[in-house]
């Protein structure tokens, strides 16, 4: 015998009352099938258990922690963006500096007019401003972040002596110019 149609009726009955014909067929089957009766009873018990189960409330302070994490993640993203702008800008400055140098080499043969000099200088200034902007963005984001996360500000403070230490060792390791 195929019991699956009765299983369908049993779960359907959890959502809405069955049509009378189905209800009667199911009741007749349950009266004679022990397995389906046991399953039907368990379905109802499980349904009741889940229906009565309350939602588990968010722990105390959840919303504050989630908001702080959001703010931290956002300033981290800004810092990465700023850092990338800074890197791209630095490369651009280098490229633009090389260009006038090459121009100066060319000028050894033919002096540049004022116009060509200005033309080379304007994009150079533009890029310098962009690099400054990127650096500023990265710096403010870092400070923002450290204001929210004590560990970041601790890290920032810790970098100061580290930089000092690094400078000291670098100075020691680099070859001394011997003056006689």
């Amino acid at each position: 015998m195929n019991h699956a149609p009765f299983h369908e009726m049993m779960t359907a009955a959890l959502d809405a009352p069955l049509p009378p014909a189905d209800r009667a067929a199911l009741d007749a089957h349950l009266a004679e099938c022990d397995d389906c009766r046991e399953l039907c009873e368990a379905l109802n018990a499980s349904d009741t258990l889940l229906t009565l189960a309350p939602a588990i409330p968010a722990p105390v302070g959840f919303a504050e922690r989630a908001s702080a994490r959001l703010a931290g993640r956002a300033s981290l993203a800004r810092m990465i963006g700023g850092g990338m702008m800074l890197a791209v800008g630095t490369v651009a400055v280098a490229a633009l500096t090389i260009n006038p140098l090459a121009g100066a080499y060319g000028a050894f043969f033919r002096l540049p007019t004022f116009l060509t000099l200005a033309r080379a200088l304007l994009p150079f200034l533009d890029v310098c401003r962009a690099v400054g902007g990127g650096g500023w963005l990265a710096l403010t984001a870092l400070l923002d972040w450290s204001a929210q996360q004590p560990i970041v500000s601790a890290g920032l403070l810790a970098t100061l002596p580290l930089v000092g230490l690094w400078a000291y060792w670098f100075n020691k390791l680099s070859p001394k110019v011997v003056t006689t």
């Binding site: 369908e8 779960t11 399953l39």
Partner: peptide
């Protein structure tokens, strides 16, 4: 999906 899941939950109880 819900039909199958409900049967599985009932079977877990059984």
């Amino acid at each position: 999906r819900l039909h199958r899941a409900r049967l599985a939950l009932a079977e877990a109880l059984v």
